[in-house]
Amino acid sequence: MSDALRETNFTFDPPADLYRGKVRDVYRRGDRLLMVASDRISSFDHVLPRAIPHKGQILNQIAAHFLHATRDICPNWLESNPDPNVAVGKACTPIPVEMVIRGYLVGHGWREYAAGRRTLCGVPMPEGMKEADAFPEPIITPATKAEEGHDEDISREDILSRGIVSPEVYAKLEEYTRRLFSRGTAMAAERGLILVDTKYEFGLLDGEVYLIDEIHTPDSSRYFYADGYAERQQRGEHQKQLSKEFVREWLMAHDFRGLEGQTMPDMPDDFVHSVTQRYTELYELITGKPFAPADTTNIEARIANNLATTSWKPA
């Protein structure tokens, strides 16, 4: 199997602060960020024990694809991709709210609905819906961005009453979220896909709202195959998904849902290989481009070499 990038430990001159997220290693120096998309994979808010070859490159390149395609809608943090696993850009002050937008009743929304609740984050949901039905129009259901553990649902009213952002900034977050989702929906339709739901993260820079992090990747979004969607709904069948849901399903089949006291199952080589294959399929279908895997002989050395002529040359 190809080597995988579990983590990086670069030192830079001038020095940079390192924050290690679930998937990305983020280096910050002044008003600039360097993000390394590792091959770590998370599910149920836990990082799985084995890294997935090429996953970081795939996510980094999907995110860049969509960030470039949405620059006319709102400014974003990305400036360059000096390596297949690396993104460099502006350091914004993150807004601690994830803007989740749902076009269809699935996942957390469906679980709440099935439990009898008809509002989510203060947003009403119509009666008489089935799992995977489309909402009359997409609904925005924000979540607080937790440092550790599970993010929590929060309503527009609570965001404003707590003073997390001003009414003017929140209005901009909703506007950008709807416009980005509309663009993502149109781009997905061109590829025979349905953008089901996704989340956007934003930050502030000099008082202006910027789109940050990744967008429309299989880690942050859910897609259905458009072909056969209506027929599957009519028959009451599960929809064919293009997301990392298959990883969650494998974990659940091995009695792991991220709950206290549960043991993370070992990931055999054949499963790790199948995850790489699925992510490659996701990349090619979502972007319409063939995937060109980068050399994985020594990924950290490759990244250092690609950064050597930039202002982020490793020390």
Rank of each mutant, 00 (worst) to 15 (best):
residue 4 A to L: 06
residue 6 R to W: 13
residue 16 A to H: 06
residue 18 L to I: 07
residue 18 L to A: 03
residue 19 Y to H: 08
residue 21 G to H: 01
residue 22 K to V: 00
residue 30 G to P: 13
residue 33 L to E: 12
residue 33 L to G: 00
residue 37 A to R: 00
residue 37 A to M: 06
residue 42 S to Q: 06
residue 43 S to E: 09
residue 45 D to N: 13
residue 45 D to K: 02
residue 47 V to P: 02
residue 48 L to G: 07
residue 51 A to G: 12
residue 52 I to Y: 00
residue 56 G to Q: 01
residue 58 I to Q: 02
residue 62 I to Y: 08
residue 65 H to E: 13
residue 67 L to T: 10
residue 68 H to M: 13
residue 71 R to L: 13
residue 72 D to K: 12
residue 73 I to V: 15
residue 80 S to N: 13
residue 80 S to G: 09
residue 83 D to W: 07
residue 86 V to A: 02
residue 87 A to Y: 02
residue 90 K to F: 11
residue 90 K to E: 12
residue 90 K to R: 15
residue 93 T to A: 12
residue 96 P to Q: 04
residue 97 V to M: 00
residue 106 V to T: 15
residue 106 V to I: 12
residue 107 G to K: 08
residue 107 G to A: 10
residue 109 G to Y: 04
residue 110 W to H: 04
residue 110 W to K: 08
residue 110 W to R: 08
residue 111 R to D: 15
residue 114 A to W: 04
residue 122 G to D: 01
residue 123 V to K: 00
residue 134 A to T: 12
residue 138 P to L: 05
residue 139 I to S: 03
residue 140 I to G: 04
residue 141 T to S: 04
residue 143 A to K: 07
residue 145 K to F: 04
residue 146 A to I: 05
residue 148 E to G: 06
residue 154 I to H: 04
residue 156 R to D: 03
residue 164 I to V: 15
residue 170 Y to W: 10
residue 171 A to W: 00
residue 174 E to F: 01
residue 174 E to A: 06
residue 177 T to K: 03
residue 178 R to D: 06
residue 183 R to T: 14
residue 185 T to W: 01
residue 188 A to C: 09
residue 192 G to M: 08
residue 193 L to D: 11
residue 194 I to L: 14
residue 195 L to M: 11
residue 200 Y to C: 05
residue 201 E to W: 03
residue 202 F to G: 05
residue 203 G to N: 03
residue 205 L to D: 07
residue 207 G to C: 08
residue 213 D to F: 01
residue 216 H to S: 09
residue 217 T to S: 10
residue 226 A to F: 07
residue 229 Y to T: 08
residue 234 Q to Y: 03
residue 240 K to N: 07
residue 245 E to S: 08
residue 251 L to I: 10
residue 255 D to C: 09
residue 255 D to G: 11
residue 261 G to I: 11
residue 262 Q to M: 13
residue 266 D to P: 01
residue 269 D to G: 07
residue 269 D to M: 07
residue 273 H to S: 15
residue 275 V to K: 00
residue 278 R to S: 14
residue 282 L to G: 14
residue 290 P to A: 12
residue 292 A to F: 08
residue 298 N to I: 13
residue 298 N to A: 13
residue 299 I to G: 09
residue 299 I to Y: 03
residue 300 E to I: 11
residue 304 A to F: 05
residue 306 N to I: 07
residue 306 N to S: 12
residue 307 L to S: 12
residue 315 A to S: 14
